[in-house]
């Protein structure tokens, strides 16, 4: 194993460890028992088949949101708008789910594709503005998040319901819910979406690593000037990268719309899944396989946290603190790399 791969693997592991340690310090300082806290978390994530089902269900949108962020990262873009793209994807999937009556083999793929298209469209705008006007995508995608939130709420109120707060349930033919998966996990909300998420990971890996287009997208992310000199169309590649990233985010929304909830309700704030996707991508080193693992980690943290107040009296927000600190430590990977290189020198 060469040295950069070694650090690429250890930086996220270190960051997670540091985050967990910092979390226990927070618990000790505020008078909670960290061992009780973390064992409640572990039990709440993997304790029995119901909890495992819930953890996998939560992992599903995390994988896709993580892929969305990572795809953009790999192509030199920072898509902080996954949250907004996820919301419009959710809306589109439910919209298709309630308005058509089709056989399942057509309806379900159609609803998922609609979500992907909606997310892609939402990401097209920042991509286009970056390619055409050189506007930084971070600010535009943040603004697009809020536009998505308000527009979606307005559509739920005026189109998908009669001034109500949620849409109707989607038709059975568009649903990802599965009685089989529910029954083997003690009636958790686990649904078939996890299969779509895993396929998504394979698609991203194949697209980026095994196709000419993926090579081009990565090249443009590395060095625009060199890519232009090599004859690549830089603006078109930027837009394409953003659109693909948005499509992943849209499908993540479909997981919520078609799988977990089966409808969409007016939101007071963001779902948080899109923002957590940034953490998932960072911990997963922007690698499709790594993202599956880190999505599982975050899914377990989020679901396990729900068990903490009742059995260890620790507020669920502890997990948000831990996640925030993990992001800090990954972002400050310079620190971790510095420490690692010190250790190595001493070892020699």
């Amino acid at each position: 194993m060469n040295s950069t791969r070694f650090t690429n693997f250890f930086v996220p592991v270190f960051a997670v460890l540091l985050g967990v340690i910092a979390g226990s310090i927070v618990m000790i300082v505020s008078g909670y028992n960290p061992i009780a806290g973390y064992s409640a978390l572990l039990y709440g994530a993997f304790g029995d088949s119901y909890y495992i089902g819930e953890t996998i269900r939560q992992t599903t949108p995390y994988i896709l949101a993580g892929l969305a962020v990572a795809f953009a990262f790999r192509t030199g873009l920072f898509n902080i708008g996954v949250e907004g793209q996820l919301i419009v994807g959710w809306l589109a999937s439910v919209w298709v789910g309630v308005s058509f009556d089709l056989p399942k083999v057509i309806h379900l793929p159609l609803a998922v594709l609609a979500a992907a298209a909606a997310g892609a469209l939402w990401a097209f705008i920042p991509g286009f503005l970056k390619a055409r006007f050189k506007v930084h995508e971070v600010i535009i995608t943040i603004m697009m998040n809020y536009i998505a939130l308000h527009v979606t709420n307005a559509i739920i109120r005026s189109v998908l319901s009669d001034k109500g707060f949620k849409s109707a349930k989607i038709h059975e033919s568009a649903s990802l819910q599965s009685e089989f998966l529910q029954s083997i996990t003690d009636y958790s909300t686990l649904h078939y979406g996890i299969i779509i998420a895993l396929i998504g990971a394979v698609v991203m890996w194949f697209l980026l690593e095994k196709t000419t287009k993926g090579y081009e997208l990565r090249a443009v992310g590395f060095n625009q000037h060199a890519s232009r000199y090599a004859g690549m169309n830089v603006p078109r590649n930027i837009i394409l990268a953003m659109v693909i990233s948005g499509a992943f985010a849209g499908v993540a929304g479909a997981m919520e719309g078609l799988g977990t909830f089966g409808n969409i309700s007016v939101k007071a704030g963001f779902t948080g899944v899109g923002f957590d996707g940034i953490a998932v991508a960072l911990i997963g080193s922007n690698n499709a396989f790594g993202i599956i693992l880190s999505a599982l980690l975050f899914g377990a943290l989020k679901v396990g946290a729900l068990e903490m107040p009742s059995s260890a009296d620790v507020p669920t927000e502890l997990v948000d603190i831990v996640i925030a600190l993990i992001i800090f430590f990954v972002a400050s990977s310079y620190l971790i790399r510095l420490l690692l290189s010190r250790f190595k020198k001493e070892g020699k």
């Binding site: 902080i80 992001i327 800090f328």
Partner: peptide, 30 residues
């Protein structure tokens, strides 16, 4: 994070947002 440890400033800002809401709600509940 962003000046001394040369972190990506956007990522560090995202972490600030997470940490602020997590920490303050944690303390409110406490």
């Amino acid at each position: 994070a962003s000046i001394t440890f040369r972190a990506d400033q956007v990522v560090s800002g995202v972490a600030i947002n997470f940490l602020a809401i997590g920490l303050s709600l944690f303390l409110v509940k406490k």
